[in-house]
Design a protein around this nucleic acid. Structure first.
Lengths: 215, 215
DNA sequence: TTTTATTAATCAATCGATTAATTAATTTTG
DNA sequence: CAAAATTAATTAATCGATTGATTAATAAAA
């Protein structure tokens, strides 16, 4: 049955995504993944060709929808720069917190200092989200909504870096924040609203025209 | 000769630190490390016992000095909170940018979702630096220097996360910033001063009492 | 002469991947 | 519709390669 086959492949990807996040790409063996998924090891190669094929299949499942949502916010001409920033942050934070396993996996592999085909692919994917954000900031500065002295590029490092810190180093961030950032209920009830409010306040303080603390 | 022995062990650790950063702990093989260091593979076990022993030896070499410097800034009673923040950022940014390989290696291993002895050890190390920062912020708020509505914990995520983004995902941050963040000259001439200035401006905008954007 | 350093060879374990055989599902055919 | 033929899914066993680690022998230093 076509439906069950898709479900099974999806189940394997679910498990693989989690195991990759837990152990890293190299640390996760195909035996581990197939074992936890309850399927024969050969099924991974049957469905996805190879271990790397599994990894890339996880990508395909996550990225396309996510990116189109962010881009539509960036291209929305009916709202001003501040509202774009708000909507971008809301969508982005919701998505990355919910799909935390995927983003842990993603960032672990891109944080290899050595270039490879895989790091290049991941870089291209991530740069699309970055560029949407950069365009929002640049537009806001051009229109006079945001402080023209703002360091746009390092602002990218702050928004994505702050998110990475919370999601990708959960042992530390959970200790700092005082609750388990990987717990779904905690994420929805506490983490997401707090993170959104903080990020907006922080960007507002830095980007607003009234502050001239740069001299 | 005692001197040469230390130099040789140090050389192995230098190479291992770089290879771990490039390939990750699991991705880096002992043959890789010994090969690039120009020593017999058995020397790694002779000097450090095991692969994990090499990893931990890299730690011992880096952390103690670094942490005492940061702590002395936090405990310096002759300067006010703003100055402490400035000195902390200066020291911290200098150190992590210079020792980027170590911090790439460090963060790759702590970003495993699964707990282990190693992640616990790394967590303890990192929490010391975090706590110094938290104390500076808390003191500033208590003394009325900083905005009392500030989210101290998420501020931790921002400072360490922004740094991680620049250093740990060099392929992306280099593209965003427009220059190679792993190049030593670029680091000293461009990255460090820019990063310091930005971080201070950002924190000042968020922490200063005059802004009441929180309502 | 004794301790330390270094080497090449080799160990068992694990890795990702493939095979050939078997079962289940689907399609074709009478 | 049912039997036969074909395709798809699944399994256990095994492949060669690589992993971290150890050994016994040798060289250098003390």
């Amino acid at each position: 049955m076509e439906k069950e086959k898709v479900d099974k492949k999806d189940h394997i990807l679910d498990v693989a995504e989690r195991v990759f996040a837990e152990q890293g790409y190299d640390g996760a063996s195909t035996r581990m993944i197939s074992g936890e998924a309850g399927v024969n090891m050969a099924m991974l190669n049957y469905y996805f060709g190879s271990k790397e094929g599994v990894f890339l299949a996880i990508f395909d499942r996550r990225i396309s929808n996510f990116q189109s949502v962010l881009m539509s916010i960036g291209n929305d001409d009916s709202i001003n720069s501040w509202e774009k920033l708000d909507k971008y942050l809301d969508s982005y934070i919701d998505k990355v917190v919910t799909n935390n396993c995927f983003h842990i996996m993603l960032n672990r592999e891109i944080s290899k200092a050595k270039k490879s085909d895989l790091t290049d692919q991941i870089t291209d994917i991530m740069m699309k989200n970055v560029n949407v954000f950069l365009n929002i900031i640049a537009e806001g500065i051009r229109k006079g909504d945001f402080n023209k002295d703002a360091d746009q590029q390092l602002l990218v490092a702050t928004i994505f870096g702050t998110k990475n810190y919370i999601i990708n180093t959960p042992h530390i961030s959970s200790k700092v924040l005082g609750y388990d950032v990987l717990d779904v209920d905690v994420q929805n009830d506490l983490l997401k609203p707090r993170f959104k409010k903080y990020m907006k306040t922080l960007l507002k303080a830095y980007l607003q025209n009234e502050n001239d603390n740069n001299k």
